[in-house]
Design a protein around this nucleic acid. Structure first.
Lengths: 200, 200
DNA sequence: TGTACATCAGTGAACGCGCGTTCACTGATGTAC
DNA sequence: TGTACATCAGTGAACGCGCGTTCACTGATGTAC
């Protein structure tokens, strides 16, 4: 009996393949990066034929977009949790942002990275998700900063955490140092500014 | 006469194919991104057979590494030029860094981006180029900043310009604003730090 | 309760594609005599 | 100056690969009577 699909077994029939595809796609994304996402590999891991996915997603692109949506939801949630109670400190939000990226590097890259190699539709969809997320974040910043040039401050902060997150994800950093203290120190510098050179 | 190769013509025979491959690869890189680099496409554009490349490069990877090397050389040069005469201001160096990335987005991404999808050898080679570049940069910073925590300052600065460069390359920013003034404002914030929230 | 049937989530086979690389070759170049 | 020859940058054909997607199908599910 190859695939008897007894009721109660964990065969897919009737509904849970969609969910299984997303979960598997997500681990594949973390293992192989956005470029490694492959419908055939997902199907292989689920021990299911490749075309079966087409009953749940229009294309591989659609799967990637669904993952990116998950990612933006989760990131937003984490940031909300980090900024919730205190109302002036931005450090915790920055740390939460970077921690999300470090916990989900493949997903983070899908969300924010390499716009270039994406196929048309995915590119547009993901781009608009990004822009929505950014709008939310800077709206939030607006409440915490003096009025003039909020947008510069938002861009400054986003650049900083985005850059630091990617450098860490890419393993470009001193392996010796403790990541969390490094993040902490860098974010503190965002508050104080770079030290001036010693007066000559 | 299909390929008569008269002396003085711009046929490749004897030596200039290597150069031509690098140039074409570089424009392809800018058009299609690192993921779009393709030996066959390069050959096609040069109107040359694909295997001919193997007389000059061991593999497609080797071409990519050669491009990355070019990139690091050029970036280093630009930074040197920007920091040469003045000795305390970091703004010009930051601006030069970002300007390099904006002028060569594909190359910049090859150099610093998406480590994940690279094939083994290329990955290692490019990674070590990056680390070398970073070491040079922070060595230079060491001369411009008060001693304690130079490495934090270097990481702060690198994160900021890297993040901002990528956001601009990806076209994630307000298309309305003028890029150069935005860069300028953000870099100035790196000196002063974020404004404090209004005292309650 | 038992049978006929529509639904639709799954299947295997096949499509066309572009890729990096290998192979045995060819034919122009430039050198040795 | 003229001929024989080694070199080696180029060639076309072919390899095996993995991919996304389409197609006509099958067979279990759950519903209507």
């Amino acid at each position: 009996m190859p695939h008897p699909a007894e009721p109660g077994s964990d065969r897919y029939h009737r509904g849970n393949l969609r969910q299984a595809i997303l979960e598997t796609a997500r681990s594949l994304l973390e293992e192989a990066g956005p470029g490694g996402l492959s419908l055939r590999e997902i199907a292989r891991r689920l021990d299911v034929s490749a075309p079966s996915a087409y009953h749940h997603f229009a294309s591989l692109d659609a799967i990637a977009v669904a993952l990116a949506e998950q990612g933006f939801d989760e990131l937003t949630e984490r940031l909300k949790a980090a900024t919730g109670n205190l109302d002036g400190r931005l450090g915790p939000a920055g740390a939460a942002y970077i921690s999300f990226a470090r916990a989900n590097p493949g997903l983070y890259r899908l969300m924010f990275g390499e716009g270039f190699q994406m196929i048309s539709k995915k590119n547009l969809a993901v781009r608009s998700l990004r822009q929505r997320a950014y709008a939310t974040l800077s709206e939030d910043l607006r409440k915490r900063l003096p009025e003039p040039d909020v947008s510069t401050a938002a861009l400054f902060l986003w650049s900083l955490v985005h850059g630091l997150a990617l450098l860490m994800i890419d393993g470009q950093l001193d392996a010796a140092a403790d990541p969390n203290t490094m993040i902490d120190k860098v974010l503190r510098l965002a508050g104080t500014g770079l030290p001036r050179r010693p007066a000559t």
